[in-house]
Design a protein around this nucleic acid. Structure first.
Lengths: 201, 201
DNA sequence: GAATAGTTCAACCATTTGGTTGAACTATTC
DNA sequence: GAATAGTTCAACCAAATGGTTGAACTATTC
């Protein structure tokens, strides 16, 4: 008898894969069961119903994206390093889990009310340290006038958009899969540079 | 007898609303019929089936996002003006149709193969004029080294990400709906400034 | 090794969903 | 004003889907 992964764990991983691929509405319980290589009623045994299974997967996904981001933002390092760390983190994460950002953002849009409590309860909000850091840099004349919110938005946009809109961008730019990976990796250096220095020499 | 909008048109508009809200899988034919205020079998009379109805809506949506963008990129104006026009265009479009960008990008990710031909057949690709313009600016030392592809990606990212991830961003930044509109409108000036000048003074 | 708790599954069920049908109604044409 | 083509709808249908049940199987406990 081969030592198998726990059934519950197999279900979770299968659900993660199928939900990320098809979204909540598009995912089929049977497909998840097939992917996990078990009977459909197992899904209900371990996770009462589709909603519970989905929420388990979704919450785990959010935890892969958020805490590290806000941890870095709250840390005691210079602004430029924060940006560099965040850019590296998101690009590393994408290589491991390309569908994750699109999944979280789409489902978040579908049921905003449902998740606001959850997100809120995670203590996920822009750290004061970071806001102050941007404010101080602006006040002391080191940065052009900008709010912490907008600064944050710029960094996250430049990182995540190419991951979320991958298929559209890849089609428009006519890149192969490998070329797209290269394209993304180039951005590790481009993003901090554009954010801080802009393009004009 | 009041002069009513054509049934076909009412169906199209209802379908647009429901598909954008719920996605292909989440949308229900009955819901679309209710929204249009007609019987469900009307949907099938005018648009054979769910797929046909969806494709009609989807293609119309793509046409609202793409042609103007690539028209501006291909036009004979300075680079900075192109960026400014694109930023204005997307922010105006968002005010009229907040769900449109997320809809197109999500569905494009769901069925990439299905739409590659369609997108391709629209002649949607990065115009040579634009690529050359960036190249020339780099060669003549006016811009830091960057490709047209990456330049384009930066502009589109900064514009569209806050529209696509609205609910996540709004939750994290704890903004009301009105505040979020203001937040977006501020970006009309911020984006060209960051792209060209960066933040460091 | 019997009793117990935990685990697995085939068969089933109720509901929902996309889609069909045929009759009725309306506007137009001649 | 009869015939025709186009339009609307209530009632139906087959398939798919999330969920349930009860029996059997397995590991653990005493």
């Amino acid at each position: 008898m081969p030592i198998e992964k726990e059934t519950e764990q197999k279900i979770f991983e299968a659900a993660q894969k199928i939900f990320q691929k098809s979204g909540f509405e598009g995912a089929r319980m049977q497909e998840i069961a097939d992917e996990a290589g078990i009977n459909k009623s197992m899904l209900h045994y371990y996770y009462r119903n589709k909603d519970t299974l989905f929420m388990t997967v979704f919450q785990s996904s959010v935890k892969k994206i958020m805490p590290q981001l806000f941890g870095t933002l709250a840390s005691d390092i210079p602004l430029r390093e924060k940006v560099e760390q965040i850019v590296e983190f998101y690009h590393d994460m994408f290589l491991k889990n390309p569908q994750l950002p699109a999944f979280v953002i789409y489902e978040m849009n579908q049921h905003p009310q449902r998740f606001k409590d959850f997100i809120g309860s995670m203590g996920v909000q822009l750290p004061e340290v970071f806001i102050d850091q941007v404010e101080d840099a602006v006040d002391s004349g080191k940065l052009r006038s900008i709010t912490g919110d907008q600064f944050f938005m710029n960094v996250v946009s430049m990182c995540m958009m190419p991951m979320i809109a991958r298929n559209m961008v890849q089609t428009v730019l006519q890149l192969t899969d490998d070329e797209y990976i290269d394209f993304l990796n180039e951005r590790r250096k481009i993003i901090p540079s554009v954010i801080f220095n802009g393009l004009i020499i």
